[in-house]
Design a binder for these strands. Structure first.
Lengths: 221, 221
DNA sequence: AATATTTTTAAACATCTGTTTGTATAGTCA
DNA sequence: TGACTATACAAACAGATGTTTAAAAATATT
C-alpha cells in the first residue's frame, strides 16, 4: 500500500476494501474485516461512504473510470490519426486491453486486486452492480466491439459476437487469475507480468477474429 | 426441477442449493434461502449434509465427477482408436468441452447452474474448495493439456501455456455467462444453445493453438 | 404388533452482521 | 481565543446466520 501523508482514512479504507473484496468477494467480506485491515474505526466506513454497497461501488468506479476515459481518449486519437482508414486491429485490442493488464500487474498500489474484482463482477451478478456495469462498462465495450467489427465484415453477426465473447472471456479470466499463473504453470509463466500477458493476448485476439469461418482440416502433425 | 417420487429431501435440497449458489454465490446464500426454496426444514440440511460447506462440495462434485469420468473414458477410447497416431485436435477439444456445454444448456434439470458455479470457483477462491479443485479438476485439465500439447510442438512452453489459459478462460467465461448471451447480443445469439456455442468454440480453440507464433501483419481491409 | 431406526420438525443458541447513536477529539476560521 | 465544523471513536441495536438440541413423526425390522 502506498504511503499516505495526512490522516487520509478514506483512502486507506478504499485500499483495504479493494484487497479484501478481490480475495473474498462482497458477501464474504465484512466491514469489520475491512476496517480491521485498514486500522480504522468501524464507523468510519459509514461516515465516509454511507454503507457497504457504496463502498464497493466506490472501489470499483475509482479504478474503472480513469481506465475507460483513457481507453476512449486513445481510441479517439487513433481514429483521428488513421483519418479515413481503419485503426489497426492490434492497436484496437492493445488500447482496450493494456490498461487492464497493466493494472492487473501492479502489485505496488493494489491495482492487481481490481482486475480480480472486475472478473468477479462479470461472473457473479451482484444486484446493485448491474446498473454500474451497464453505465460504466458496456458502452466502452460496445465502442470497441463496433470498431473491431469493421475489420471482420466477412463474419456473420452471430459468428462475430461469439468470437468477441471468447476474446473478452479469455481476457477477463486471465486477468482475474493472473496472480496464480506461476503456480498453475509450474513456474513457466510469471505472475503479474503485464508485458508478457499482453504480448500473448494481442496476437491471440487478432487470430480469433481473422480465423476463417470454416477452418480447413487441421494439420495432424 | 425434475419430479421426485418419494420424499427425497436430499435431492430436492441439492437442486435448490445448486440454483442459489449459482445465482448468489456461497457467501451470498443462506441455508434458510435454500431450505426455503426447497420447502424443507432448516435442520434437514445439517441432517443430510452436515454443514454448509459439505452441501456446497456435494453440489459441486455431484455434477463434476460424472463429467470428468465421461471425459476421461472418451479420451481413452479415442486414443485407443487412433492407435499410434494422435487424436485430432477438434476431437480433443470436443471431448473436453461438450459435456460442460451440454450441461450449461440444460435448463430442465438444473445443469445450467453448475456451469455458473464452476465459473465462480475458478475466479473466486473459496478456501475450502481448493483441495476439491486440485483433486477433481486439475488432473483432468492436465490430461487434456498434455494431449493438446502434442499438436503444438512448434510453440514454446510459455507460449503454449498462455494459449491454453486463454482457451480455458474463454470456455469457462462463456459457460458461466451463457444464460445472458441473448440479452447481451440483443437477441442475435441464443441463450442456452449448447450446439451453437460448441460449434463456435471448437474452431476458435483450434485456431488459437494453430495460429503462427509471429503473426504476419493483419489484413487491414 | 412391538421395537428399533431413520427422518422431520420446531425451538433455541451463540455469534456475527450492517448500521446507528452519542460523544469525544482535532482542525479551521472569525 | 472561541465558535464551528469535520472526523474519530466506543458502545449499542436489531436482525440474520450457521449450528445444535430434543422431541415428534415416519419408516423399517423383527
Amino acid at each position: 500500500m502506498p504511503g499516505f501523508q495526512k490522516s487520509d482514512t478514506l483512502e486507506i479504507l478504499l485500499y483495504a476494501a479493494e484487497e479484501l473484496f478481490a480475495k473474498q468477494g462482497f458477501d464474504g467480506t465484512t466491514l469489520r474485516d475491512i476496517t480491521g485491515l485498514a486500522g480504522v474505526n468501524l464507523a468510519a466506513a459509514h461516515y465516509h461512504l454511507g454503507n457497504k454497497e457504496a463502498l464497493y461501488i466506490k472501489v470499483f468506479t475509482r479504478r474503472l473510470q480513469p481506465i475507460n476515459e483513457s481507453r476512449l481518449a486513445r481510441l479517439a486519437r487513433a481514429e483521428q490519426e488513421a483519418n479515413i482508414s481503419l485503426v489497426g486491429m492490434e492497436q484496437l485490442i492493445e488500447i482496450m486491453a493494456r490498461p487492464l493488464f497493466e493494472l492487473a500487474a501492479d502489485t505496488q498500489h493494489g491495482g492487481q486486486y481490481f482486475a480480480r474484482i472486475l472478473g468477479r463482477c462479470l461472473v457473479e451478478p451482484l444486484p446493485f452492480m448491474e446498473a454500474i456495469i451497464t453505465a460504466e462498462l458496456q458502452p466502452v465495450m460496445a465502442r470497441f466491439g463496433q470498431a473491431l467489427r469493421r475489420h471482420s465484415p466477412q463474419l456473420a453477426p452471430e459468428e462475430y459476437l461469439w468470437r468477441f465473447s471468447f476474446v473478452i472471456g479469455a481476457m477477463h479470466h486471465s486477468l482475474a487469475t493472473l496472480h496464480g499463473m506461476k503456480v498453475r504453470t509450474h513456474g513457466i509463466c510469471r505472475d503479474h507480468d503485464a508485458a508478457a500477458a499482453l504480448q500473448r493476448f494481442i496476437p491471440f485476439a487478432v487470430a480469433t477474429f481473422t480465423a476463417p469461418v470454416k477452418p480447413e482440416p487441421v494439420n495432424n502433425r
